[in-house]
Computed example of a mutant assay.
Amino acid sequence: MIFDLDGTLVDTPRGIITTFAAVFAQLDLPTVDSGSIRGTIGLPVPAAFAKVLGVSEDDPVVATCVDLYWSTFPKIVLPMAPQLVFRGVFDGLRSLREDGFLLAVATNKFIATAESLLVAAGLREEFSVVVGADQVSKPKPDPEAGLVVLQRLGVPAANAVMVGDTTHDVLMAHGAGMSSIAVTYGVHSVEQLLSANPTWLVDSFPGVVAAVHECG
């Protein structure tokens, strides 16, 4: 089982929005509405800043924003991480691992930030592998991150399932040849998720566990 991180395991979107706003304020950039920022969650951070600012990723302002984001995010989000874990995640992951499932994370966060967040949230020990955006040449929705996880775990795609809250996760699963579970409590709407044709659509983490047992 491969999990997305933001919006799937941990309710970081509100922390991400707060961090973006703090970055813009520190750089005296125009305020961006929270909906626009939320709509970029799931993309790599440079792509997200470029999108909300309406510039190309190689624009110097993007690099400045990204550097400031990485220094600001831990101060805002990490202290509250344990309280941001979605209902049912702690018990669900533990039961899945006890039932013999190999668990991994594939995220568009950089690996250092992903590891810090998982540790702060008390979740890191549940996962055998964590793959971040800076460990692959193309981030989600490209299938590379999923394929790297499968290679490290020695698991064929037919025996794997991707769990995520955005179309990026579902499309990655399709590209890698895996099943997918889309969760509706994260960033993308039900309509958006259905447009990517996930194998299952569930509205809670206990629903994820039930769906995996069904396909397992």
Score class of each variant (00 low, 15 high):
Leu5Tyr: 08
Gly54Phe: 13
Leu201Val: 14
Gly154Val: 09
Ala210His: 14
Val212Ser: 07
Thr184Phe: 04
Arg94Ala: 14
Thr40Tyr: 04
Ser71Gln: 15
Ala121Asn: 06
Pro143Ala: 09
Val66Asn: 07
Arg97Ser: 13
Lys51Tyr: 00
Ala196Pro: 05
Phe86Ile: 07
Gly132Lys: 08
Glu214Leu: 11
Thr8Ala: 01
Ala133Leu: 01
Ser195Val: 04
Val209Thr: 12
Glu98Asp: 13
Leu9Phe: 10
Gly39Val: 06
Ala145Ser: 14
Val85Gln: 09
Cys65Asn: 08
His168Asn: 14
Phe24Trp: 11
Ala106Glu: 03
Ser71Met: 11
Thr184Arg: 09
Val208Lys: 05
Glu214Ser: 12
Thr19Gly: 06
Lys138Asn: 12
Ser34Trp: 00
Gly146Met: 12
Val187Tyr: 01
Ala112Ile: 14
Asp4Pro: 10
Gly207Phe: 00
Phe20Arg: 08
Glu126Trp: 08
Asp6Gly: 11
Val10Gln: 00
Thr31Ser: 12
Phe127Ile: 14
Ala121His: 04
Asp28Cys: 03
Val52Phe: 00
Leu93Gln: 08
Arg87Asp: 15
Glu125Ile: 08
Ala22Val: 02
Ile41Thr: 06
Ala145His: 09
Leu93Cys: 08
Met162Leu: 12
Leu96Cys: 07
Met1Ile: 15
Glu57Leu: 11
Arg152Pro: 00
Val45Phe: 05
Val155Asp: 05
Pro46Leu: 11
Ser36Trp: 02
Met162Cys: 05
Leu117Ile: 02
Thr31His: 13
Thr113Asp: 04
Ser56Cys: 03
Ser204Ile: 04
Val131Gln: 10
Met178Pro: 02
Val32Pro: 04
Gln192Cys: 06
Ser179Ile: 01
Ala196Ile: 05
Ala176Pro: 10
Pro13Gly: 06
Tyr69Trp: 07
Leu27Asn: 05
Val209Pro: 02
Val61His: 01
Tyr69Phe: 15
Glu191Tyr: 01
Gly164Leu: 11
Ala21Val: 00
Glu125Val: 13
Lys75Met: 07
